[in-house]
């Protein structure tokens, strides 16, 4: 049975990569290389070190940005869920920001903070923060009312209510917010590097595109999407391990 689990993903990979190969060989466009050439380019770029080097400068702002969101964003979201006053002041803003195309701010960030690390970190934070804050807030506000009442009936203080009931209950949603924030962070870092800074994976994509090295460009894009998918999948696995659905108490 263990082998069975891998059969469909395998067929699925073969199906999509096969279509890609056919489309590239046909070709649908001169700028559309087949899968095999892209894979070779990916191998080449990994071996010659250009890809690992690019990732070093791409992942640094991403990690810093997500950690910042994790601390400040979750903290603020929890505050918003616990305090009616903070909620009153900030909920409408975050509801709008969550629906808004925050990427529009990125050009402004460039022209203030230049093209350095700060600008990239800000791009990640601006895109990731709304969903991190809103998820933490929702996690706190969705607390099972009956559990809170139970805590009060057994003479729990407000502090105990928050520490022993509300926070453990909100844990799963808060963590899911971090995962969604990471997905937004990847979008932010890619836009930032494509638009602003000629460094990292974005530079690799723009450079190879400008000199018409399409297999290399595809390989760079393929790698960032694969990395994002793996990172998010990893967080999802961790989430299910830390907060199995049956003990979440939704």
């Amino acid at each position: 049975m263990a082998q069975q689990r891998f059969v469909w993903p395998l067929i699925s990979f073969v199906f999509v990569f096969g279509l890609w190969e056919l489309a590239g060989r046909w070709p649908i466009s001169l700028a559309f290389p087949p899968f095999s050439k892209t894979a070779l380019a990916l191998l080449r770029m990994t071996v010659d070190g250009s890809l690992p080097k690019a990732y070093l400068s791409t992942l640094q702002p991403l990690v810093i940005g997500i950690v910042l969101c994790g601390i400040a964003g979750i903290g603020f979201g929890i505050g918003m869920g616990l305090s009616r006053t903070i909620e009153w002041f900030s909920l409408p803003i975050f509801i709008i920001l969550q629906a808004a195309p925050m990427a529009a701010i990125i050009p402004l960030i460039t022209y203030i903070y230049g093209i350095g690390l700060t600008a990239k970190v800000l791009a990640v934070v601006v895109l990731a923060a709304p969903v991190v804050v809103m998820n933490s807030y929702k996690g706190i506000r969705n607390t099972n009312a009956s559990l809170v009442q139970m805590c009060r009936a057994f003479l729990g203080t407000r502090r105990q209510e928050v520490v022993k009931i509300i926070l453990p209950h909100a844990g799963a949603l808060i963590f899911a917010g971090l995962r969604l924030g990471l997905a937004m962070g990847f979008i932010g870092i890619v836009i930032a590097e494509l638009m602003i800074t000629p460094t990292g994976i974005g530079d690799l994509i723009s450079y190879h595109s400008s000199v018409a090295d399409y297999p290399e460009m595809f390989a760079a894009i393929f790698s960032i999407i694969a990395l994002a998918a793996l990172a998010i999948h990893g967080l999802e696995r961790l989430e299910r391990k830390l907060f199995p659905p049956e003990i979440r108490g939704a």
Binding site: S12, V16, I28, F32, F186, V190, I221, I224
Partner: peptide, 26 residues
């Protein structure tokens, strides 16, 4: 469902913005 499920799951949270340069080229 089995053939495409994995891809939908990947692309629902993948940075689609990275695909824009491909679209521009193609």
């Amino acid at each position: 469902g089995k053939l495409l499920g994995m891809w939908v799951n990947i692309f629902v949270s993948a940075p689609i913005s990275a695909l824009v340069p491909i679209l521009m080229a193609v």
